[in-house]
Simulated assay, not measured.
Amino acid sequence: MKDGKTKRAAIYARVSTDGQTTENQLRELHLVAERNGWPIVHEFIDQGISGAKGRDQRPAFDALWKGAVRREFDVVMVWAVDRLGRSLTHLVNFLSEIHAKKVDLFIYQQGIDSTTPGGKALFGMMGVFAEFERSMIQERVKAGIKRVRAKGQRWGRKTIEETDPDICTRILELRQKGLGMGAIGKQVGVSSRTVWRFLRGVEASSQVA
């Protein structure tokens, strides 16, 4: 597992109810880190929070994500893949993000360790899924706009919905990552109401036969 460089580890643990404990998760992950010589520099724990909730509703997971982007550690350690989340979309987004930042992943229960050659190859597949998902989002935006135009309708401000498909794509990507309307608006430079109106339009257009 070692590659000649000491890897700084961050542990993420989560339980869905306040009556549960992360003690077992933490104990096993600490043992693995010790065996591999990985100093643990961060522990992120979401207590009593469902994995179905988005990033904006899981403060520790959000902090983990931001820490990975800033390269505050070299490997993320979790007990099981469902600790990261129960939404496939959110999971793929997170894994593709840390893969892009060259942060490794260790998942105890599934035996995934991207610090090894085999694990790294498996982890690399996340990029394929992420690119596929992005292309699907772009197609969804284009198809939605086309349907609305065909009906002679508008989705609000022309500069967003009709002339800036890249912003539309970004809004959907951020929403799938679990961000709220206000946070999305700040990142793409529009109001939260504009984000809400756009997402409502996408949802409505997707129901058009």
Rank of each mutant, 00 (worst) to 15 (best):
145 I>H: 12
157 R>M: 09
123 F>I: 02
91 L>W: 05
73 F>H: 01
29 L>M: 15
53 K>I: 05
69 V>E: 15
21 T>R: 09
135 S>A: 13
102 K>R: 15
175 R>M: 07
22 T>G: 02
178 G>N: 03
112 I>Y: 04
121 A>M: 14
149 R>Q: 14
148 V>N: 06
180 G>C: 03
53 K>C: 08
163 T>W: 05
125 M>L: 15
34 E>F: 11
192 S>Y: 09
44 F>G: 05
159 T>R: 11
97 E>M: 15
117 P>D: 10
37 G>E: 02
11 I>W: 00
74 D>V: 03
198 F>N: 00
30 H>C: 14
7 K>Q: 09
32 V>C: 11
199 L>I: 04
114 S>V: 00
101 K>P: 10
95 L>W: 00
56 D>A: 12
194 T>M: 06
150 A>S: 15
174 L>F: 02
126 M>D: 07
22 T>M: 06
83 R>Q: 09
10 A>C: 11
88 L>T: 11
179 L>K: 07
80 A>D: 11
150 A>Y: 04
134 R>M: 10
57 Q>W: 06
36 N>E: 14
43 E>H: 10
71 R>V: 12
135 S>M: 12
34 E>A: 15
23 E>G: 13
51 G>Y: 00
97 E>S: 14
27 R>G: 12
175 R>L: 05
77 M>R: 06
121 A>W: 05
40 I>T: 08
62 D>V: 10
170 R>L: 09
113 D>V: 01
153 Q>N: 09
64 L>A: 06
73 F>L: 07
157 R>P: 03
68 A>G: 13
138 Q>T: 12
176 Q>E: 14
195 V>N: 01
147 R>M: 14
40 I>S: 07
14 R>I: 01
159 T>P: 05
132 F>L: 13
137 I>K: 12
208 V>Q: 15
